Simulated assay, not measured.
Amino acid sequence: MKIGLYFGTFNPIHIGHLIIANHMVENSDLDEIWMVVTPHNPFKKKSSLLDNHHRLELVYKATEAYDKIKPSDIEFKLPQPNYTVHTLAHISDMYKDKEFCLIMGEDNLKSLHKWKNYETILEHHNIYVYPRIAEGKIDSQFDNHPKITKVAAPIVQISSTMIRNGIKDNKNMKPLLTNEVWQYIDEMNFYRK
């Protein structure tokens, strides 16, 4: 079984994430997508993150209607700060019968050469890239790389930051979230202040 790992803080998960995940699993040779909730990205301020269990619950609520998209808390059990290369080694050891691939936006591919042990990642795992509007060029070593597959997914211009700011400003962000995710955010009074 071939599984695409889609990493994110998902703070909150929105329809853009689901559009990408669903498109990737339906238009590639991936059997499933696991939405890996990252406890703390070393490049993001932790103060703006909801607690891990709340973000995981939002991912559960967002994905329960999709058979091929699953939530994952695999990184919650790993030492922090964590790096993708460590997660991939850990998850591959845990599930020896599965092949794990990375899902990333084109913007992340542009900075892949800065990732910890990116050569090891490319040696052992395929990467599926979806288009994102971003400045700069992709490092030439990643052009036509045999382990990198570009999937012509829709370009989605929705961000979790935009949603958090909209909720804080008392704007209606409901259309950008699944009903279940919106209800949980609303009931828990998240992002209001």
Rank of each mutant, 00 (worst) to 15 (best):
I167V: 07
V36S: 06
I91Y: 13
K98S: 10
I133N: 15
Y60K: 13
K174I: 12
R55T: 09
S92N: 08
L30D: 00
P79K: 06
K96R: 01
K171C: 10
D107K: 00
M94V: 11
E135Y: 13
E64T: 03
W34C: 09
H125A: 03
R55N: 12
L56T: 03
P146D: 09
N41V: 04
Y6S: 11
H40G: 09
H17L: 08
N165E: 14
D97N: 06
A21T: 04
I13Y: 01
S140D: 02
P79A: 05
Y60S: 03
F100G: 09
I74H: 15
Y66E: 08
S111Y: 13
P12H: 00
N126F: 14
H125C: 06
D51Y: 11
L50Q: 08
K45H: 15
I33M: 05
I74W: 14
G166C: 11
Y184V: 06
N41M: 01
D186Q: 15
S47D: 15
L18F: 06
L177V: 02
Y128C: 02
E119D: 14
E64P: 06
G4F: 00
E135M: 14
S48M: 13
Y6P: 13
T87R: 09
V151L: 07
H14T: 09
W34F: 11
E180D: 14
R192N: 12
L30P: 04
L78D: 01
A65P: 05
G166E: 08
L88N: 00
E187V: 12
